[in-house]
């Protein structure tokens, strides 16, 4: 019945019973009611532990390095957050980025001007996203399956484009990948802009709310006058263009395209970050803030494992463990939040 969690809503009338009771709760339980509270606690614990164990962690050089690494993932995860909130899924963004990266490197190597390469790469990435969208929307193949197939396909295409070689691009685009503005890497500036725009779109535009409605119940969205098919195409195209952007960012950071850069593995990290951030796999729920925490947590854990010189065989084990713990905490928190 309707009385399950009535006054747990944040906007409960002031002086309501739950508000009066709140201070007496233990901090641990109180944190459950702060959005992403559990996630923040895990993040702080990991940071404090690493800082105590390895002095290098807090050095500005290392922090900048983490920010650069995280930025590429953040751009992919931002697009994915919006798409997953709308009930979609795209496993091919990382592979799309790989293709973009390889094509971009080849074009620059072939003497194209940098602006032309950027435009061509972004157009190509958008097209790939749009094709994903067309397949998902009109053949009704589950997004999970369709985009997993295109991920494998695109990983192969990326290898074909490189033809087994490594292609360097010299110092073209290197300022984007390595320079800073007032101490913040350009890459991070781009990522923050993308995240902020995504957040604003989800919260303050009808386009974003349409995504929530579609993810919550596609039939209702369609019957309410939302052009669901057009929205889906737009969302997959958007995921594509952001994947392309991530590919270019990666290219500028690495200064070269090598086989098996980016690809499905990168995408799985992004999916993990989005899910850790509390976005529902079934759609209808999602926040960019959660995604930011998810991306940063995974980035910090990877960096900490490097700094602590953990045997590389254990790195995957630890990363998986952190993912699991964060997901469990998230689920516990979700159950105690209103609407469930």
């Amino acid at each position: 019945m309707s009385l399950k969690t009535p006054s747990a809503a944040p906007d409960v009338a002031s002086g309501g019973p739950s508000e009066r009771r709140a201070p007496s709760r233990s901090t641990a339980r109180g944190l459950l009611h702060v959005p992403h509270g559990g996630l923040v606690v895990v993040l702080i614990l990991v940071c404090v532990f690493t800082a105590l164990q390895a002095d290098a962690f807090t050095s500005s050089q290392n922090l900048l390095n983490v920010l650069r690494q995280v930025s590429v993932n953040a751009v992919i995860a931002a697009g994915l957050t919006l798409l997953m909130t709308a009930g979609g899924m795209d496993f091919s963004m990382g592979s799309n980025a790989a293709v973009t990266l390889c094509v971009g490197a080849q074009l620059i190597d072939g003497g194209w001007s940098t602006p032309a390469v950027v435009v061509v790469c972004l157009a190509l990435a958008t097209l790939i996203g749009l094709v994903n969208g067309l397949v998902v929307t009109y053949t009704r193949v589950a997004p999970f399956v369709a985009t997993l197939a295109s991920a494998m396909l695109l990983d192969g295409v990326a290898l074909l484009v490189l033809d087994g070689m490594s292609v360097t691009i010299g110092d073209k685009m290197s300022s984007l990948g390595n320079d800073e503005v007032v101490g913040v890497p350009y890459l991070t500036v781009v990522a923050v802009l993308v995240l902020a725009l995504t957040g604003v779109t989800m919260r303050f535009t009808t386009f974003g709310r349409d995504a929530f409605a579609m993810g919550g119940n596609e039939h209702v969205a369609r019957l309410s006058g939302i052009n669901v098919n057009a929205r889906k195409l737009a969302l997959y195209a958007l995921a594509g263009v952001l994947a392309g952007l991530a590919g270019l960012m990666l290219l500028s950071r690495l200064g070269a395209a090598a086989p098996n850069t980016a690809g499905l593995q990168t995408q799985l990290t992004a999916v993990a970050a989005v899910v850790i951030g509390g976005t529902s796999l079934a759609g209808g729920h999602g926040t960019v803030v959660g995604t930011v925490f998810g991306v940063v947590l995974l980035g910090v854990v990877a960096n900490a494992l490097n700094l602590l010189q953990v045997n590389s065989n254990y790195q995957l084990v630890v990363t998986g463990g952190v993912l699991l713990v964060a997901a469990i905490i998230n689920e516990v928190q979700r159950k105690s939040s209103p609407g469930h």
């Binding site: 019945m1 309707s2 009535p6 006054s7 809503a9 906007d11 309501g16 209103p338 609407g339």
Partner: peptide, 15 residues
């Protein structure tokens, strides 16, 4: 609604 603006799924059938 019992409080503010809850998810519609938490309302009674009539509401």
């Amino acid at each position: 609604a019992l409080s503010g603006n809850p998810p519609v799924g938490s309302l009674s059938g009539g509401n």
